[in-house]
Simulated assay, not measured.
Amino acid sequence: MDALIELTAEQEQFRAELCELLCQDAVRDEVARSRRLPYGQETGLLDVHRRLGERGLLAVNWPVEYGGRGGTIVEKAILTEELILHGVPDTVHTLGIDIVGLAVFLYGTPEQRARLLPGLARGDTTASVLFSEPGIGSDLASLTTRAEPDGDGWRLYGRKRYSMKTHQSDFALCAARTSAGPVAYHGITLFLVPLRSVGVHIDPLWNLSEERFDDVTLDGIRVTRADVLGEVDDGWQVVNRVLPLERTGIDSAAKADRLLDALLRQAAATGRLTEPAYAQRLLDLDARVRAARLLAWRCVLHLRDGRPDEVDSATAKWYASEVAKELAGLALEVTGLDGVLDARDAAAVADGVFDAALREAPGLTLAAGTSEIMLYFVGTSGLGLPS
């Protein structure tokens, strides 16, 4: 642990508890199998998620009544780091716990919390996000999915793209427009949409990463006031509150840390660690990975202290994801063509970690807000530059 990141003895013990569980042979074997699934298949909920859930660790910062341990954002950040450092696929956890679950915990009714959170915390159910649309990514003000009044509820019509894990999820947090007006962000409502329902059509969008995107058509699925998260027409406020909590950069920093460790081992084994073409670049990236982690933990500690800083969050998210992306590119230079063999190939270098990182890297700079949007936010809100 970096000396600049101070944890209590209890938090260090919590990290040790996690490491002990994640180092069990059964967990290691499951993670290895998940990396070797046939092409076109991908991981969903794993036994390791359920093992964590049984111990109140999967949603450690949630109250005990909802399946957590009543921990803080610090324990949650430790969990995210250790899952990634131990190679556990993290998308299901990020979507279900860190985004949708957090939104329900912060803005859900008592009934919604009691109905949805325990299953997520146990690792029995999961959730996805339906925000992006064709031609519309980070700019929710332009969304076209509409909620048409239908008696005491609404029917949803629209198309969502680039969502992940929707085909494996039980429900989704969906943004739709319930009214139109002069203020673009007003009139957006968030709905908790059951995905195994008439009116939801999910098709794959195949890509180079291990996890497919989904193309989701909402064709008149009916929702009621009980499915609304927060207030009608005020969904942007929920999004604006939850997304900065996701943008600590902890996940990208941990991925960069894991990748750098594997790359340094490989470079040392092949004699390239001291080659002039790579030595200085590896040294520079080592410093930048450490800086990314410190920026991320600064955000976590701000959240712990009840003083979130959206500019710091945007900075950390941008920096950590860009460092991870650059590191993935350098890994291919160091390892050569052998580095693009995936984990299914017996000759793969470092169990295919470099290939997986290279294919995932572009998505890190897009998910949860593109690098361009993060820089725009830092420039306008942080530096006071004109928009």
Rank of each mutant, 00 (worst) to 15 (best):
L106C: 13
T145R: 02
A184I: 09
A147R: 03
Y185P: 01
N61K: 04
V74C: 05
E75W: 05
G70P: 06
T178I: 05
L95I: 02
L58M: 01
E133H: 04
S138N: 15
S179Y: 02
T72F: 04
E75Y: 07
A114H: 04
R51D: 13
A59V: 07
A172L: 12
C174I: 09
G187N: 09
F105V: 01
R55G: 08
I188V: 11
G67S: 06
I97Q: 06
P134F: 08
L102Q: 15
H93Y: 15
R50W: 11
H86W: 07
A114D: 13
P134I: 09
L79F: 08
L46K: 12
A121Q: 03
G181T: 12
L106E: 12
A176F: 01
A77I: 04
G108C: 07
G96W: 00
T144Y: 12
D124L: 07
D47L: 03
L116Q: 02
R55C: 00
G96I: 06
I136K: 07
H167P: 02
R51N: 10
K76D: 08
A121N: 08
T145S: 13
E65M: 12
I99P: 02
L120A: 10
R159G: 01
W154N: 04
T80V: 11
G135Q: 06
D90Q: 14
V48F: 07
F105E: 01
G137T: 10
E82P: 05
L95F: 04
V104F: 02
L120H: 07
F171R: 07
G67D: 11
S142L: 15
R161T: 15
L102K: 14
H167N: 08
T94S: 10
D139Q: 10
P134K: 14
A121Y: 05
V129I: 15
G187K: 08
K165Q: 15
I84N: 12
A77K: 02
D152E: 14
T125H: 11
L52D: 09
I188H: 03
W62H: 11
H167M: 01
G71L: 06
L143A: 04
R177A: 10
K76H: 14
G153W: 01
I99N: 09
A175N: 08
D150N: 11
Y185D: 13
E54A: 07
V60N: 10
I97W: 05
L85W: 05
G68H: 03
T189C: 03
P63W: 10
R155S: 10
S142M: 14
F105W: 00
R155L: 11
G187E: 06
Q168E: 15
P134N: 08
G67R: 03
Q112C: 04
H167R: 07
A147Y: 03
V48Q: 02
E133A: 03
E148M: 10
E133K: 06
S128R: 02
E65K: 02
A141Y: 12
R159N: 06
Q112S: 08
R50H: 12
D170I: 01
G123F: 02
R122C: 01
A59M: 10
G101I: 03
H93Q: 15
F191K: 06
A141K: 11
T126F: 11
E81Q: 11
K76F: 04
R51C: 02
Y185C: 08
L140V: 09
L190C: 10
W62L: 13
R122S: 08
H86E: 07
G56M: 08
V74M: 10
L95D: 11
